[in-house]
Every structure is written in C-alpha cells, then in structure tokens.
Design a protein around this nucleic acid. Structure first.
Lengths: 328, 328
DNA sequence: CTGAAAGCGCTTACAG
DNA sequence: CTGAAAGCGCTTACAG
C-alpha cells in the first residue's frame, strides 16, 4: 500500500502539501494540485483512515446495534438511520447482538476504543446500572424505547399508551378474557407493554388471568399458544408484545382448529410485513419506523457536534392498524 | 479520556511498561503489573484502538456487506459469520447497501482506509470489471454466489443446478407452461437461476414463454403476477428467483381467485421463515445458510492469516423443500 | 503558497 | 525487568 510519503516523493512535494490537496483545504497552486493528483492516481493511493482519524480525533462513523438485525421490523429503522447519517457525512456500521450481552459489549468496545464516535442502541438488554454505565463510555442514543430512570436520550413511541390502546380495542369489541404474551422482561419495552396491558384491564375492571413470557420469536408464540389451549379456561382474546409471537399464536390456534378471529381475537405489535400475509391479516400497532431511525440518528449527531437536543425523550406517534384478526 | 501516558504517570512507570501489561506479553514483575492495573482501574482507562491498530497494522475486524440486511434470509448467514469470526478473535461489522452501489462503495472505502482487514460481499451488484477492481482493494470473499470469471474466492450453492432442480420438479408434475420471475440481472445469482430455468426447459423441449424481471421484493412478485394474469395465455406454474417474489405472486393470484396450487403451482428459492407461513406453504430451495456464512468467514480469515484456502469456489449442497404450493 | 516539525495514542525492537 | 526512542500514517499550527 502506498502511503502519503510515497505520494509526496512521487509528486516532489512535502507530505503537508499532499495532505492539503487531499483534504481539499489549505492553499495550493493549481500546478501543485495537478502534480499531487497525478501522483495519487499513479500510485492508486488511498489515505489510511487509522492515521487520519487518530490525528483528527474523530471517525465520522457511528455504530447502530440491534438485538436481531434480520428482524424485518428494523428494516425501515435502519434506512432512516442511514439516510440521516449520510446526509451529515457519517457512515453507519451495524452491530448484531443476537440477544447476547457479550455481543453488545463487543460493539460498545468499538466505541470505547474510539473507533466510532457514537452509538445507537435499539432495545438495550440491560439493567438500570448497566445502562447507566454505558453512558459513560460515550455518546449514546436509545431507540424504540425510553429509559426514564436516567439522563438517557431516546427516541420511541409511548409503548405503555400503545399497548393500552391495543388492549382497549379488544375490550371495546366485548372481550373480557384477554391473555398477554409478553417479551423478555429484561427489555424495557416489554415491561412498558405489559404495563399498558395491565392498565387497560384494571381501568375496565377486568381480571388478569394469563400472562406468559416469550422471546419475540414466532416459535415462542406458537408454543405458548399451545399451552393456553390446554388450560380449562381459555382466553377469547390475545395481546402479544410483538407481531412474530402473535403470528405464531395464530398459526398454532388454527392448527388446533380454533377459528381466528371468531373464537380467538389477536392483536400484535410492530406491523411487520408478515402481519399482512398471515391469514387472517393481523391487527397491530404500527410505529413510524423510518422516523424513529432518522430521529435517533439526528439526536446522536447533534450530540457529537456539541449541540445536544434539549428534548431528552422524543416521543413519536403510533397508530392501531385494524385488520381482520379481531373480527369486524 | 485517559491515555496510556496518564496511566504511565499514575503508575510511575513508562508507557512501554503499561503497554506490556496491556497486551499481556513482554516481561514484567507482579508488582509492576499490580501498579499498572491499579492505575488503569482508577483512571477507567481504555486503550485507543486507532493508535493501537495504526501501530499494529491490523484491526482484527472484518466487514460483511448485505444488499438488504433485514431480509430474514440473511439471518442464519450472519450468525454463521459471527460465530466463526469470534472463534478466531475477529469482530464483524455489518454493512447494508440497500441495493445501492454507492453504499457498497462506502463500505469498500472502510477497507481501503484500512479500518478493517477484509470484507465479505453477499450478492455483489457489480459488472465484471467492477468486481475485479474490488479484489485490488483488499481481501474479499463472495458469499451466496460464485463469480466464475476471475480469481474470486466464493462460497455458495450451485445456483444453476438448484434452479434446474426446482423447475424439473414442476416438469415432473406435468407442467409445460412455466413462467419465471427473475431477480435483477446485474446480480450474478439472478443470471445463474435464469440459466438453470432455461436449461430445464430446453432439455425437456419446453418453450420459454414468460420471463419477467422483479427486484426480489414481495411487491414486485405481486405486480408481476398481476401482469401474468392479464395475458391471454396463462402459465400453469411459476418459478420465482426468491421466496418473497413467490409469496407476492401467490397472494396476488389468490386475490384474483386463482387457486394455488390447483390452477397455479409455485416454487420459490431461499426457504425463508415466511415460506412456511404463507397459505399454501411454499415449495422452495433451501440453502445451508449458517454454513455459507461460517465458511465464507473461515475463508476470509484464512486469507488474512496468509494461508488462503486452496479451493477457490466452495460449493455447498442445497435441498428442495417440498410443501403444498405445487400440489401433491 | 510551502515545508519542517510536532503530535494524535499506541507497540516494539534496542540497550542497559 | 525496564525505559528511551522510533515509528505506524496522517494533519495542522508555525515559520518563512
């Protein structure tokens, strides 16, 4: 690999001059520019980022970490992040933790090592103490959930209110036996959605009878529905903390001859593509995914540029998408 | 942020000694180690990766680039890559190109800047010249498709043979009017799957009547099926270059009252999760996804360590998953 | 407009 | 076992 020294030698100038041409600032004559560009061309030179960023003390790169990056729910979120980042000259690198905290730590380490300027976490799988220690590592923004117990910048819908609305929809349709399949309880938004479910039941004088814990996978929705079907008393409605588990539940119910929505009404959360494909199409909470991603990135970049957003928790609107999984 | 100098000062030693303790090699007394570790602890010191890797001339980081990272098809591939990488002490950062070549170039630039040691491309969207010039940038492995026109290391199934088998399955079931929805033709595996389709038709004396081009999205499968349904002559079977398009086609056909598989048999490619959820469940080609990812990473790391795999194109086995979308 | 020099934060031969 | 020094590849005040 050619270095800046090689280019300087080939162009007959100093490395300082090459650098000026390279960074396109500092004065130089057209003739100097020509010579340097020629040398760069000839040597097929590409500046070494490690040297450059070590000197500049910034990388113009940010990391976005996901628990399961291939969940199509994140598709538009990533798009929003990338569009916003590239508009400001930042590159996004993506991290996938597979729901494993050591993997999350791997990416946090990249930030600690200063190989990126900031980080966005979607669904921090962390205790209050852990999440607070993350803040000390560097600039962080939380996406898809709010962490209210600290000075933690975040962008998300109001998960409590959205869950409340989803369950209220079932109650309005006449249901009084409503089960909930929650997400892993070390994830903030799981707890928030459970909270919204409970609030809706309580305000309507409905007893909480079934709360089962899944892991957001289709398979867990399937097997937990299997369990519910074996009970003597069965729910007439189900609110699942995400679409995949809702869809798993529908498939399992149908496999057991239970009619959806006639014998079991189902509401999901996220509005992934599959929600429209399952039969019957799933009623669910839709989030402004693209905007969540873009907004989280905007907030992070604002922090990096020393002008942090005065709004700590950015709350975006959600909508209830009514399809056929709850009946008319 | 504390630097190695701060630690050296606090511990009353030289930076060289701190570095020795840090990298856990070079000799030092237990007492020295203790002092240094204490200082590191006290200052909450974390070595700067830019400095370290600039000096060491390697980053132990590799980039894996995907055209659409949230396509669930890539889920297991990523897992395979990450497991293999972390077994060798490498960190994987993921890139998403959204099918845009400038985005692909962004990630290639990270390699050029030496901020990563190597790169894996899945579905290179490149002409022969472009893809060859990529090789000059640094160590590259191609995953999910083979590029036969150059010295390009790759890991994939035999896409031609797999497509041939998928179409042969339809022919064995008695179909002679078989349409194909192909992928974007600048993607190698699209061309390979088209090739397999054509070979199967030719060897069975069947005329090629409908080849439409999609973009791998559900939506494109839907709209192209819509077009097919408006033709005077209609196919009795369809081979789509991926599952998403196959599923889109099924949904559209059903929406027009066409019975699947009775009036239209459909075969897809990839065996994504959705393939089992659509009604009827989709017959499709399954690839050893995890193994593709792990094998591609193994090959890349072997290159980085100066012991390149003597096998240029690693060909892995596929299977035809027979479900209900083609009838009995 | 240009170059020599310093320095970003590390690691590692070289001496002692 | 330890430190002083060189150097990885850049950029940028400082002089001229």
């Amino acid at each position: 690999m050619a270095t800046i020294k090689d280019v300087a030698r080939a162009a007959g100038v100093s490395t300082a001059t090459v650098s000026r041409v390279l960074t396109d600032k500092g004065p130089y004559t057209p003739e100097t520019q020509r010579k340097v560009k020629e040398a760069i061309e000839k040597l097929n030179y590409q500046p070494n980022g490690l040297g450059r960023y070590l000197r500049k003390q910034e990388t113009r790169t940010v990391i976005a970490v996901f628990p399961d990056i291939t969940n199509p729910f994140f598709s538009q979120i990533i798009r929003g992040m990338e569009d916003e980042a590239s508009a400001h000259g930042y590159t996004v690198i993506l991290g996938n933790t597979d729901n494993r905290s050591e993997r999350q730590n791997n990416y946090l380490k990249l930030l600690e090592e200063r190989r990126a300027d900031g980080i966005i976490l979607t669904l921090a799988r962390s205790s209050v103490e852990e999440i607070d220690s993350i803040r000390k590592i560097g600039p962080v923004v939380l996406a898809c959930e709010h962490f209210k117990e600290g000075e933690f910048s975040s962008v998300a819908i109001d998960n409590v209110a959205a869950a409340y609305e989803a369950v209220s929809h079932l109650i309005r349709l006449g249901h009084t036996h409503i089960a909930h399949i929650e997400g892993p309880s070390d994830i903030i938004l799981s707890r928030d959605r459970l909270l919204g479910y409970r609030r809706a039941l309580r305000e309507n004088g409905i007893k909480e009878e079934w709360v089962l814990q899944g892991d957001f996978s289709l398979e867990s929705g399937r097997s937990l529905m299997g369990k519910l079907l074996q009970e003597k008393r069965r729910p007439t409605a189900l609110f699942a903390a995400n679409d995949k588990m809702a869809i798993g539940a529908i498939l399992e119910a149908k496999a057991h001859g239970v009619k959806v929505p006639k014998e079991l009404a189902v509401v999901g959360f996220d509005d992934i593509e599959m929600a429209q494909i399952v039969d019957p199409p799933l009623t669910t909470i839709a989030q402004p995914k693209y905007q969540i991603g873009a907004e989280a990135m905007r907030k992070l970049i604002a922090m990096l540029q020393g002008q942090p957003d005065p709004v700590l928790h950015t709350i975006l609107p959600y909508t209830l998408e009514i399809r056929q999984s709850c009946g008319a």
